[in-house]
Design a binder for these strands. Structure first.
Length: 819
RNA sequence: GCCCGGGUGGCGGAACGGUAGACGCGGAGGCCUCAAAAGCCUCUGCCCUUCGGGGCGUGUGGGUUCGAGUCCCACCCCGGGUACCA
């Protein structure tokens, strides 16, 4: 008899070849029927170097979901592509002179090879890179759609500038005052840039979060980022200069407590306010200093409050009081109106400023203790305000005061957002060109659709110089104006790469369409993505932008869905020895090395077995060995059984040993199905298959008949298929002659889920005192009698008074005694 | 500071308010072998034991309950997000 040895190096390529030859995972748009389609998508990779362990986890999760959905009878769209534009390839080009396209292409090939070696069930007919003209042609088309509908615009604004990458950044790309990418300290600059009007969608982006199945913490992060605040805009007049200054406040109920007024250093009126007051020099000096501060310095929370008197006053509209005006850097120009009313009694920042500059503090909201410590930011009845409002709860007074202001023309309800418009232009080379031509006569002219794509030209110098390297491609820049035909120049900025990834999920639906970005009738049938899977680091940027694009494109009539990702799963990080893997730490686990040593099935299974996939997990080298042993045992047991045991059906009345393993098989079906369907509990699903196999090994299965053993083993292979597709396919074929991916997901037979007897747990005063075999359908009375008959139970209740008896049918009995 | 997660054996982790520690790793002993590798079997939370069993155990302190890792209150520690947003 032939010795069976588990050899992934032989098994895995053999089945990968079958899947490639037969294009097993391709789906036709004709089969996209909303009643049974499933769109399973993992975030597309940025192709740089080799795939890392996080990719393996991401795509192992996605592939398991895709397989499970397929075998549950759904038509699964499971595509793959590459987010290929971006700075790392360009920075590499500056260093080495290698064209970013070549470096990117090399990385893409490495990703492609490994995805194949991992056995991922991907529809390769829909593959693309976002750097290919056949893709970015449509990125440009979308830009023009937004431009033509006023959602893309150019304006001069204070923007965040990364001096190292020599480009502007979106607000979302600035982390603690530093460039998200390179870590350099970000500067503020006044520049004319391109923006997308995402703020128009703030309310919808907020409201529609309620309708999607996303992790609550991701929704919370988006809500905080959008930062909707309800309040009022209130007008304070500077009589000396006859200028009205509106301020935004969320606490109009504290208007009577305002004792001074503060403007941001960037406020355009600061200089003219100070003019002629004797404060000019002090103000100018302060403003210059504030402007010179880095974003990080200025943003430090514990920074002492500083500011300078402007020499002017404004009138508080509710009581006519005259309030001194200050300029202080704790007020931000980009939020609200760039000016605030200061209520030191009920705002910590205003209080700190008042302390520093010896300004009056007035309590206008009573605390539990009316003379309690200030500042008090909580609620309570108003005091020291106005006879009409004193004693009224501040939340009610808030409404009344705003109504009053409105009637008097001094203010009105208002809503403010933290969200800013999305700055999308970049002064860099390796990105999608913005399809706009600047003409002295006609202004900004969109490149006509039929001339798309505007192809990214080759340049020799990628180095950023404060303007795009494309500006050096003179022959490319100079074009006739599409409108008047006169001399004109192309826009030389490129788009933020987040633009590329904000619509790729739409292109997958109709990836080979050369006539349009997509056919709406096709997209409407595949979308929304049923299950999206990726890292939580994209909780704000990518996910917010993609939602915005989807809504904007829907408004323009190009698709019918409002939300791109119906369900989201965010995976945890894989660490090594508790630390993030990095080349500098030398603790990188390479998927390629893993697959080489153990095979893809082991690598994929272990990464899912290691713990709940949404949590961080620490890599263990010995843990992988264990998984490899398990897969080897599974394959060997199946292969041997296929050779040695005759083919036979499961008997109608299996004997005791057979019944045990058939029951275990159905238990495992039930468990794995639930773990996959209801939760993302891959770790416990795999553990259930391990338990099943442990019952069916030759040493453990006793006298079970061949049919029952074959059934249990085939079931184990079938259930493990979504995680370890090669070894299970091979084992299943040996046992049944059929292809497991063509088999429907097995149903659990309820007849086998419940046994004739169960183990009754007997407690006395909540402590387990015995366990005893009991018939499944026994009455409560019968269970009680059985329980009390046990000697050890007797010993614990003997001589004591039975106070109460609890019976949980099918589970336990608890006898409560006293004395 | 605020908002989320999370604290369970030597380790990763299981556990509808009902047997805490499934499954795996690691460890101990054994089988097979001339020997090894591979494989297989048994045991493995801590303490006590007359070997029947008993006591203690899920970050800490309270509470609810016949019964709490699970629910409630207060607190401690770790991780993440966010922070002059008026």
């Amino acid at each position: 008899m032939a010795e069976h040895r588990y050899d992934p190096k032989e098994i895995e390529p053999r089945w990968q070849q079958v899947w490639a030859d037969e294009r097993t995972w391709e789906v036709s748009n004709a089969d996209a029927d909303p009643s049974h389609k499933s769109y399973v998508l993992e975030m597309l990779p940025y192709p740089s170097g080799e795939p890392h362990i996080g990719h393996l986890k991401n795509y192992s999760i996605g592939d398991a979901v895709a397989h499970f959905h397929r075998r549950a009878g759904r038509t699964v769209l499971h595509p793959m592509g590459y987010d290929a534009f971006g700075l790392p390839a360009e920075n590499n080009a500056i260093k080495t002179g290698v064209h970013p396209r070549d470096a990117t292409q090399k990385a893409i090939e490495s990703f492609q090879r490994q995805f194949h070696e991992w056995g991922m069930s991907i529809d390769w007919s829909r593959e693309f890179g976002t750097h290919e003209p056949r893709y970015y042609r449509w990125t440009q088309w979308i830009f023009l759609q937004l431009f033509q509908h006023g959602l893309a615009y150019r304006k001069d604004a204070a923007v965040k500038w990364c001096p190292n990458d020599a480009t502007v950044l979106a607000n979302e790309q600035v982390v603690d005052g530093h460039c998200e990418r390179c870590g350099a300290e970000v500067e503020a600059r006044q520049l004319e840039q391109w923006f997308f009007r995402i703020t128009d969608y703030a309310d919808r982006l907020l409201d529609d979060l309620d309708g999607i199945s996303w992790p609550e913490h991701v929704k919370t992060m988006q809500r905080n980022w959008i930062g909707r605040s309800e309040g009022a805009e209130v007008t304070f007049r500077c009589e000396e200069l006859a200028i009205d200054y509106p301020v935004f406040t969320t606490r109009p109920d504290t208007l009577f407590g305002a004792t001074f007024f503060v403007m941001a250093p960037e406020h355009p009126d600061v200089e003219r306010l100070a003019a002629g007051t004797g404060q000019e020099d002090a103000v100018r000096e302060y403003v210059n200093h504030a402007m010179g501060e880095s974003v990080e310095e200025r943003g430090a929370a514990d920074k002492p409050k500083t500011g300078v008197f402007l020499g002017r006053h404004v009138v508080n509209p509710v009581n006519g009081e005259s309030l001194p005006m200050y300029v202080a850097d704790y007020v931000l120009m980009e939020y609200g109106t760039g000016a605030i009313m200061a209520v030191p009694g009920h705002d910590e920042r205003d209080f700190a400023f008042a302390q520093a500059y010896d300004l009056p503090v007035r309590r206008v909201v009573a605390d539990q203790d009316p003379e309690g410590e200030l500042p008090y930011t909580g609620d309570g009845p108003l005091m020291n305000s106005h006879p009409d409002f004193d004693g009224m709860h501040n939340r009610e007074a808030l409404e009344r005061i705003v109504d009053w202001l409105d009637r008097e023309g001094k203010g009105h309800k208002s809503i403010n957002y933290r969200l800013r418009d999305w700055l999308v232009s970049r002064q860099r080379y390796w990105g999608c060109p913005i399809p706009i031509v600047h003409c002295d006569q006609c202004g900004m002219v969109p490149v006509p659709e039929e001339q798309l794509p505007v192809v990214l030209p080759d340049v020799t110098d990628y180095k950023p110089k404060g303007k795009s390297p494309l500006a050096a491609a003179e022959a490319w820049v100079r074009v006739p104006c599409p409108s008047c035909g006169g001399d004109a120049r192309r826009e030389t900025d490129t788009m933020d790469t987040f633009v590329d990834s904000s619509w790729y999920f739409l292109r997958y639906c109709d990836a080979t369409n050369d006539d349009q970005a997509w056919d709406p009738s096709v997209v409407n049938r595949w979308m929304s993505v049923d299950q999206y899977i990726g890292g939580v680091e994209h909780a704000i940027l990518h996910l917010l932008y993609a939602r915005f694009f989807t809504k904007a494109l829907a408004d323009l009539g190009h698709l019918d869905v409002q939300e791109p990702f119906a369900r989201l799963f965010t995976q945890g990080m894989i660490t090594k020895d508790g630390a993030k893997m990095s080349k500098s730490k030398g603790n990188v686990v390479s998927p390629a090395a893993l697959v080489e040593r153990y095979g893809a099935d082991t690598a994929r299974c272990y990464i899912l077995f290691i713990g709940p996939p949404d949590q961080d997990a620490d890599w263990s080298d010995t843990g992988v060995e264990g998984m490899h042993r398990f897969l080897g045992r599974l394959w060997r047991t199946c292969a041997t059984a296929a050779d040695e045991l005759p083919e036979a059906p499961v008997p109608d009345e299996p004997d005791a040993d057979a019944l045990r393993i058939v029951r275990k098989a159905h238990w495992a079906i039930d468990k794995v199905t639930n773990d996959l369907d209801q939760r993302f509990a891959f770790n416990t699903a795999i553990a259930a298959v391990m338990e099943l196999l442990n019952e069916v090994t030759p040493e453990k299965r006793g006298a079970a008949d061949a049919g029952s053993v074959r059934f249990a083993l085939a079931t184990a292979a079938s259930l493990l298929f979504p995680f370890a597709p090669h070894v299970t396919t091979d084992a299943y074929e040996r046992l049944t002659g059929r292809r497991v991916w063509e088999e429907p997901w097995p149903p659990a037979d309820p007849r086998y889920l419940e046994a004739d007897t169960f183990e009754l747990v007997v407690q006395v005063n909540g402590k387990v005192r015995d366990r005893v075999e009991a018939p499944t359908g026994a009455s409560e009375q019968a269970l009680l009698e059985l329980a009390r008959a046990q000697p050890n139970v007797q010993a614990h209740i003997d001589g004591k008074q039975v106070v109460k008896e609890i019976v949980v049918p099918g589970k336990l009995v608890n006898v409560v005694v006293r004395g």
